[in-house]
Computed example of a mutant assay.
Amino acid sequence: MSATSTVQLMDGTSLAKRIEDAAARAAEISPRTGTSPCLATVLVGEDPASATYVRMKQARCAKTGSRSRHIGLPATTTTAELIDTLAGLSSDPGVHGILLQHPCGPHIDERAAFEAIAPEKDVDGVTMHSFVAMSFVLPGFVSCTPGGIMRLLEAYDVDLAGKHAVVVGRSAILGNPAGMLLLVMNATVTYSPSRTAGLSAIVREADVVVAAVGRRRLIRGEGVKPGAVVVDAGHDPGNVGDVDFDTASTRTRLITPVPGGVGPMTIAILPAQTVDAAANLLGIQRH
């Protein structure tokens, strides 16, 4: 099957605007409780890209009627100090969701830091508790980027049952949870780190490819099965993803652009889950 004339872009920018109305739900919370959902963002150091991501997420929350509280920590912050900050936010009743912007720096034990976030406030889906909840379809919060990917696939009517999905990458907050969410939808999932021997041959057999490894243009068109669905979760300087868009788009049925594909969905999931967290913590039943 040739996808040259039938390729369709998965438009995350448009879909993100239509994602379930977090603003309306936030508006229900304030008059009933006297407060509004609050997201605490934590940033270690002054990396410009990380600071930009935090501002984008805060702005998106503001559009839903949620508040944000930012905690900027110096680059010299230790793991113990970061854990103390996150533990304090976890016990603060005025905070409903916590986002630790990563990477935090090579001297920080990020896993230890993530685990200091209370599961009920883990709106970025980074704790082990959240990963287990995703895997077993239990109440909890999904990792934002994998959650956004699944919303995209659903919106474009991608039937995953029985399909071979290849996830290129195995990070704890992107590749691993993305694969588990695909498995939950009855896809046959292959995890392929970038060092996988014969990676191109494995990707070429995939009905669905999720590229999440952070390697510029690692996947090229000739390595994609004709008619496949390709989700590019990579984003490098210059708006370049893990997939060589120009060559891959001539063969795919559906493909995400970079930017405008996965990124907007990631940012949209966060405020929606922050509102959910606030409703849960404040005892507001969803109608």
Rank of each mutant, 00 (worst) to 15 (best):
I83A: 11
F245E: 01
G261C: 02
V243Y: 06
L86A: 13
A212V: 05
P271H: 09
L153R: 03
L138C: 02
A278F: 13
L15C: 14
I19E: 06
G162D: 13
F136W: 14
L153W: 03
A201V: 04
A187C: 07
A233K: 02
A49S: 15
P193G: 00
T77Y: 10
A272R: 13
I117D: 12
L15I: 10
L89H: 06
K57S: 04
H70K: 04
R204Q: 08
Q58C: 12
F131Y: 14
S200H: 14
V7Q: 13
T247V: 12
A279L: 02
V209Q: 04
R204C: 03
G12I: 08
F114N: 09
D157H: 15
E81S: 08
G198A: 03
L86N: 10
S90Y: 02
L281T: 04
G234N: 11
L254E: 05
P37Q: 03
V123I: 15
S135T: 15
K163I: 01
G198P: 03
A113I: 06
D159R: 15
G105Y: 04
A172M: 15
S130L: 03
L152F: 09
S91R: 10
H107I: 00
A268Q: 06
N280M: 09
A26R: 06
T127E: 09
P259L: 04
V132F: 13
Q285N: 11
V189S: 03
Q273I: 08
H235V: 04
Q273Y: 05
R151K: 12
D109P: 00
P271F: 09
A23T: 12
Q8I: 07
A228S: 08
A112C: 02
K121M: 08
G214V: 05
R25A: 12
G234Q: 12
E154P: 02
A272S: 11
F114R: 05
I117N: 07
A27E: 15
G223A: 03
L183A: 15
R217G: 09
A49Q: 12
A112Y: 11
S192E: 03
E110L: 06
R204L: 08
S14M: 10
P74I: 05
P103Y: 05
H96A: 07
P193D: 00
M180N: 00
S90W: 02
A161P: 03
D124E: 14
G94P: 07
Y53F: 14
L15E: 11
L15F: 13
D122V: 00
E222G: 14
A233W: 02
L100W: 04
A80Q: 14
V7P: 02
D246Y: 12
R251D: 09
I108Y: 09
I202R: 12
V189R: 04
V54L: 10
D11Q: 10
G94T: 15
A40W: 04
A112R: 12
V213Q: 10
